[in-house]
Design a protein around this nucleic acid. Structure first.
Length: 484
DNA sequence: ATGTCC
């Protein structure tokens, strides 16, 4: 089949392949419908980016695109690339600027009827207690060098030991909230300084904290094990490593641009700057990126703990009445060292997931005991007006995509166009008419994040479900949102 | 995404 300049083969209704030609070391594989493929080719260069990534030294099996694929820095957002640990490279472009950007979901025992009369007050207080917006700070005391270095090295246990949340939260976080290869010494002082005042802050753009209602249950057994039921109130948090992770990425893009030359790696795009994983530069990036990931886990943990406290204080209820707990926390911008089967042989790989979520199957040793039977929980946020999905991973994901799936809706309109669309309207009121009470620092951010600016996330999760990669457990509808 | 330019 010929799509514009690309030769693309249809594998099945939800999967297309770009054969390995020229400098491609592996084929590209993109999980989309034919209709989606048309629009993707129409709107950006992300297909070319899949082809570019397929040229990275040591890449295994395929350069993947998920149905929410769009143009990103070097790698597409919605891209997955596994490189061989011994012969392959690691690239900051395959992680993104927001290191360990991710999503967490917390459950409560409250129902929508319990909360409806108090919703506005809850959102007002959440907005008061959790700083949002670019450059936001001051959620908790400004951290010192000692705290920063400890949390960068040790991960989310820092937050738990400092009174933010419970030790049980660690088990319900991907990697138990710590990448052990983290080395604070690999992180610049500037990145550390930027992190100090920002712990527990939400940030801007598509980051949010939502009060959601469980709208639909698709898989009752899985939902029960996750502690989810119809009409239940849950809290969803989407944020990352703030200025700290941004600075780490920025620092290492420069270092790895030099390394690409030093190790004579020929690249189709300078933005794919990378280094052999085993090189000093590669190991330093891995150590710094892991530290940035550890910052992000602490950030989501502190925010969740502030949210729990805010809800209890607003409703005058006890912890046992609220019965608040973390369902799961996933990363969707990260590089992980994982073991996977390639052509029947187990290999140590570096999994770049950029705008892509881990989707491990039932019985995987990295899952908490209580989720062994159902597979890894996957959190796929949609736009702030429609819905989000909770899914679980499958064995097929492990065999086909190195245990990976999609991560969200993806934009329909550019930020600029969405901003234009919002001019002269009362978007807060429009959201309220949709049944969502929104508080945000900036009107521009609300315009950029309006439902009309996003694709329907249901079409994205459905592709991954039809392809057998991840399965929908529940649909969540927002009723209250705080944003940057 | 990001003290939206050290």
């Amino acid at each position: 089949m010929k799509y514009k300049n690309y030769h693309i083969e249809k594998i099945h209704d939800y999967l297309f392949e770009i054969p390995a030609v020229d400098n491609m070391l592996v084929p590209g594989r993109i999980y989309v419908t034919e209709k989606m493929m048309d629009t993707i080719i129409e709107e950006d260069e992300s297909i070319q980016q899949v082809i570019n990534v397929a040229q990275l030294p040591g890449i295994q099996k395929y350069s993947f695109g998920m149905p929410d694929i769009h143009w990103g820095y070097g790698f597409p957002i919605g891209g997955v690339a596994a490189t061989d640990y011994k012969e392959g490279v690691i690239s900051p472009g395959g992680v993104g600027y927001d290191i360990n950007c991710g999503v967490r979901l917390a459950r409560t025992d409250l129902t929508v009827d319990d909360i409806k009369p108090h919703l506005r007050k809850i959102i007002v207080n959440l907005f008061k207690n959790i700083p949002t917006g670019v450059g936001s700070s001051g959620a908790i005391r400004k951290l010192g060098d000692k705290d920063m270095k400890r949390l960068l090295r040790e991960g989310m246990s820092w937050a738990v030991e400092n009174g933010f949340g419970d030790s049980g939260d660690l088990e319900n976080t991907e990697e138990k909230g710590v990448l052990k290869q983290a080395e604070p010494g690999a992180v610049s002082q500037r990145a550390i300084e930027r992190g100090k005042p920002q712990m527990g802050t939400l940030g801007s753009g598509n980051h949010f904290l939502e009060v959601d209602v469980i709208d639909t249950i698709y898989l009752p057994n899985e939902a029960e094990i996750l502690g989810l039921f119809k009409n239940q109130i849950v809290i969803q948090i989407h944020t990352g490593s703030r200025g700290c992770g941004y600075q780490i990425c920025d620092d290492f893009l420069k270092i790895l641009a030099r390394a690409s030359q030093k190790y004579h790696i020929s690249l189709p795009d300078r933005q794919l700057a990378c280094a052999p994983i085993g090189s000093q530069e590669g190991q330093d990036y891995l150590a710094a990126m892991a530290a940035g990931a550890n910052f992000a886990w602490n950030n989501r943990q502190v925010i969740m703990s502030l949210a729990k406290k805010t809800i209890m204080e607003t409703l005058f209820i006890s912890p046992s009445d609220l019965n608040f707990s973390l369902v799961y926390d996933v990363c969707h911008n990260i590089a992980k060292i994982e073991k996977h089967k390639v052509e029947g042989k187990e290999r140590k790989l570096c999994l770049h997931r950029k705008g892509a979520t881990r989707a491990f199957p039932p019985k995987h040793p990295d899952l908490p005991p209580k989720y062994q039977e159902i597979g890894q929980p996957i959190l796929i946020p949609g736009d702030m007006g429609r819905y989000s999905f909770v899914c679980v991973g499958t064995q097929k994901a492990m065999e086909e995509t190195f245990g990976s799936t999609c991560h969200g809706a993806g934009r329909l309109q550019s930020r600029k166009k969405a901003k234009m669309m919002g001019k002269g309207r009362d978007l807060f009121n429009e959201m309220e008419k949709m049944g969502v009470f929104v508080l945000a620092k900036g009107y521009h951010t609300v315009a950029e994040e309006m439902p009309y600016a996003y694709k329907d996330v249901a079409t994205v999760t459905d592709v991954m479900e039809k392809a057998g990669i991840s399965r929908k457990v529940a649909k969540l509808k927002p009723i209250g949102v705080i944003k940057g």
